[in-house]
Simulated scan of single mutants.
Amino acid sequence: MKKYFFTFGSLPNVLAPRTFNEKVNARKFFDHRRIFQTWVDKLAVRDWVAGVKPGYDQLLPVLHHVTSDPADIPFDQLPDRFVIKASHGSGWLRIVKDKATIDRKAIIAECRKWLALNYYDVNLEGAYKNIPPRILIEEFLDNGSGEAPEDYKLYVFHGRVEIIQVDVARFGQHRRKIYDRNWQEQQVELSVTTYAGTLPPPPQLARLIEVAETLAGDIDFVRADLYLVGDRIYFGEMTPSSGNGFNRFTPASFDAVMGAFWKLESPPRLLLNSLRRPRDKA
C-alpha cells in the first residue's frame, strides 16, 4: 500500500477495483490460486507449458543445466552463449554472449546471492513465497544480430488477447510500443519510453495470439510473454501480476481502459473461490 501511494499519490481500491493496477493489487491480496506459483516458477512452468498441448515442448528454449549449488555449473561444457537465471524471482538473470570473457567466480557469487533471497521479501508477490531456489542455464535466443529478440507480451483477458506490448532492446536502450490485437498502435506509454520507430506486425501475429490464448485458457487475466526467432515462437514466461500492480500509464486514463477488459470477481468471492479450486488448476 505504501509503495502504491508513493507511486500514484493515492491508495488502491482493492475492495471495488476499477483500474488495471487496482485489479492486480486485488489479486495479490485475495487470489491465491496454486497455478500462479507454477507460472512464476521458471523451472516448474516449463513442464506445465509442455503439458498444455502436444508439441508445446517445442516452445521452450533448451535447458542446459539446473542446480541449487552454482559451484557445479559446468562452464566448460556450456555453449559460448547462454542465459543464467534464478527460478524463484523476477529480473534475476545474466546474459552471457561470450563465455571466454566471463568472470566465473563473480557469476557464482551472484547466483549465490540470488539463492539466498526470497523474492516475496523483495517485492511482496505471494506467488513467489514458496518456490524452491534454483539456478537455470538456458539457451540464448539470438535475433540474428547477436542480440536478444523482441519480447512480445500478450495481455490475455478471459481467453482473449486484447493488448500486445512489444519490448525492443530490452537489455540495451530499452523502448516499448503498445498495440491492440489487430496491431493498431495505442497512444500510451507504459513505464518505459515509447519506441520512436515503426514496428510492422510480425508475420506470425495470428500464431502468437493463438499460443498466448491457448496457454491462458479461460483464466480472467494473465500476461503471456513470447519471443520470435525467425519464424519460430519461444516461450518466455507467464505473469499473473503484471508490473506488480505498479504500471505507470501515460496518460493515466489508460489504466482504466486496461481495467475494463478484466471482469474481476468481488474480492470476498475471489478469495473463497481461489481456496476452493483444485490446487493444480487455474
Rank of each mutant, 00 (worst) to 15 (best):
V45H: 01
A196W: 07
N13Q: 04
A16F: 14
F6D: 14
V24T: 09
F157N: 08
D57G: 12
K3I: 13
E162S: 12
V257E: 14
D69Q: 11
I178T: 14
G126Q: 13
K263A: 13
S241P: 03
E213C: 05
D280V: 00
F221P: 06
L117K: 14
A26K: 04
F235D: 09
S87H: 00
I35A: 08
Q77W: 14
D98E: 10
E265W: 12
I164C: 07
G230L: 01
D31W: 10
N244E: 10
S266D: 13
L115Y: 03
S242V: 06
V49Q: 00
V40T: 09
E139W: 01
G172Q: 14
P202H: 12
D31P: 07
M238I: 06
D121G: 10
P202R: 10
D218I: 10
I108L: 06
A169M: 11
Y179C: 00
L117E: 13
W262P: 05
R276M: 07
E150T: 02
I178Y: 10
H65F: 15
L199I: 08
R176Y: 04
L226F: 06
I131L: 01
Q184A: 01
G236V: 04
M1N: 12
D220H: 11
F6A: 09
Q77S: 15
K113T: 13
G89K: 06
K153H: 04
L78M: 08
L205V: 05
D218S: 14
Q204C: 04
T239F: 00
F82T: 04
R248F: 10
I209R: 09
G55C: 05
A100E: 13
I233S: 04
I209Y: 10
T239G: 01
T101N: 11
L205N: 13
I209K: 12
F20N: 06
L60N: 06
Y120H: 08
A169N: 15
L190E: 14
V83T: 02
K129S: 01
I233G: 04
K23M: 05
W114R: 01
N13R: 06
D41K: 00
A206S: 15
A212C: 05
P203S: 15
M258K: 05
Q77G: 11
T193E: 13
